[in-house]
Amino acid sequence: MKRIRFCIKCVPLIALAFLVVWPLWFMVMGSLMPLDELRITIGPALTSAEGQSVWPILPSWPTLQPMVSLLLDMPQFFTMFWNTFKIVIPSVVGQLILGAPAAWALSRFRFRGRKVAATVYISLMLMPFQVTMVPNYLVIDRLGLMGNIWAVILPFAFSAFPVFIMMRAFDAVPRALMEAANIDGAGRLRTFVYVGLPLGVPGILAALVLGFLETWGAIEQPMTFLNDPASWPISLFLPQIVSEELGVAMAASLLMLIPAALFFFFGQKYLELGIQSAGIKE
């Protein structure tokens, strides 16, 4: 009986999981498929070829050809890959260094204007990029950053979203601990470093993973602020999908996914804990 109920519960979950994971399976297999097979299988959907797309579970003749041609024939792919790291890593590091103290202050300090400040952060977090693009460009230009990768890094580093996530995480730090630290004579900085940071680690790392995912996939900002394609990140590399390049597009998609997925797997535990702490109330 219990077993049956277990199975009944499993069915919708498995169905849901299949729905979620299947597209990823599709992509991995797509990048291993030879071009002529790709043309037959998903050509009808991506090009103007007639017919219906089909999708075999496994490619009939797995090949690394698209991957090889991407890595060997398109040197700019490597450059762009590396460029991405040059943008992403300072951005997330900045988010932590700048965001964590701000989040701590907003969460744990009592002062006038705290609510207003928190509202400002949340509102800014929700503003679409198009809204502030022009004035943003002006600011970057005034600062003399145009074309420099810092024009992309700095706005990301000051992003409001990680502050929000960390703020929720710090909310979960028991006040009793802070008070204990206070009695022991620890100042606010020491309390933050020795109590706040260790206890907020899940939230901080969750913010880091989310920040990584966001900067990794950023398109508009680098396109607008970096006028030199030589410093563009990988998110801007997506060859026009034509029948000859289907395999390459598939392989590029997969390669773009891999670092994000790796980072994600490394951080998943913390991401979960962090997201959880954002949801927990004191």
Partner: peptide
């Protein structure tokens, strides 16, 4: 130009940003 994924709309968006900023 080149092999980048710049589309016509990307290019125009960037141009407009610069024009509206007076640059």
């Amino acid at each position: 130009s080149g092999d980048n994924a710049v589309s016509v709309s990307d290019a125009i968006r960037t141009l407009n940003t610069r024009l509206l900023s007076g640059r």
